[in-house]
Design a protein around this nucleic acid. Structure first.
Lengths: 208, 208
DNA sequence: TTTTTTATGTTGCATTTGCAACAGACTTAT
DNA sequence: ATAAGTCTGTTGCAAATGCAACATAAAAAA
């Protein structure tokens, strides 16, 4: 995603230097963290893929956000809403950096090399996160499934051209766009019939 | 919103010190900026209220984001998608700080007092923005109008208790939750009938 | 004040979407 | 290789939502 080499160097540098920080490994399916109260927990995903999942009052599982290399997440960024439960789940092997934002921001300030490095990286990490969230909102603020799909395909085509593989399975894409999977499939079928796109599973080609 | 006094002091301090930064005033209805290409433009709203508006291919006007004191916005945070046009419009008198993120981040680094102060404020500003965006996504990831409404009311009640005035008009709330105004009104009527809420225009009381 | 504009609430109707159920393809584990 | 599990595409049907039109209330402008 971003300059991974730099970030890796960063990790090596800090880990011995700051007592406030932990690095942990998680296996596929494990819970990395839950958002319960505001402990100002702050995490950086070093490697792997993880999903922020919300379980609503009906027990429905909704993927609210997806994290990959260098994504930041944690309670720090959340208004905890006790009506839903939030869990970050590892989609595959994950390496995660965990710390309390308060520790870093206040107690450690200017005292440890990790903190100094974090100040350097912080803007890149957060701007990237804001960009992602904003794109997502842009998509979710479209009312029809068709507009969501075309909007998303458009974003991808800016980066990868007319032909690309989705970073999601079809099922996950429906989650990401917050539409019913079968309805989305139906809309994809219409787009295919109208020769707007070609689709084979999660491989898409735009024909316009 | 956040510690306005601090931010005001900050503004007085920098404005003479950094040639890369401008402060501009806008009247109600004026366009503050448009997101066209990536000039890495970065803005901080000092006072007033402004909306980020998207005009889609049909000319529909969609409010994507609302900014108030100390909100940050700009192209820096956007994946520019040429299929829609983005405009930031002043809802009332606005005072805005404008600069290029690159200028601040690279050319000015450690050279001017504005830059040094910005580093101090940056985490607070961005974390607040991320929190807002995340809450919005949490709301938009609910499929029914009822869940969106109750989710939003719930957030407000955490801050203000069972009785509060929406920071939006009813029409704007429908925009924010990305639902049709009349449908939302219908759902509000049902919630009233079922004695979940009391409502008088944008004043809400939760009865549960 | 009066007039004009904008916001709100309501309702009928058409459309879209979600839900449920199922069959076939693909993947993973045994 | 076989079996079990998951993912995908399809369809009928019910429910939710968007759209349009209108009346009334409130706010802004004259």
């Amino acid at each position: 995603m971003k300059d991974n080499l730099e970030i890796s160097k960063f990790i090596n540098e800090f880990s011995s230097n700051c007592s406030k920080v932990q690095v942990k490994d998680f296996e596929k399916g494990e819970t990395i963290t839950t958002f319960l109260v505001n402990r100002n927990q702050f995490c950086i995903l070093i490697s792997g893929i993880a999903d922020l999942v919300r379980y609503d009052y009906n027990g429905n599982r909704i993927v609210t956000e997806r994290f990959s290399d260098n994504s930041i997440f944690g309670e720090t960024f959340y208004k905890i809403n006790t009506n839903s439960e939030f869990v970050v789940e590892a989609k595959d092997k994950c390496k995660v950096l965990l710390f309390s934002y308060d520790d870093i921001n206040q107690k450690c300030k200017a005292h440890c090399s990790f903190h100094k490095k974090l100040i350097d990286f912080f803007p890149t990490l957060v701007i990237s996160k804001i960009t992602d969230l904003t794109s997502r909102i842009d998509l979710l603020s479209r009312r029809s499934t068709r507009d969501k799909l075309l909007g998303y395909f458009n974003l991808l085509s800016k980066e990868y051209g007319k032909s690309f593989t989705l970073p999601f399975s079809i099922t996950e894409l429906a989650n990401y766009l917050v539409v019913d999977r079968s309805s989305m499939s139906r809309e994809l079928a219409i787009l295919k019939k109208e020769n707007f796109i070609k689709q084979d599973r999660n491989k898409i080609t735009l024909l316009y």
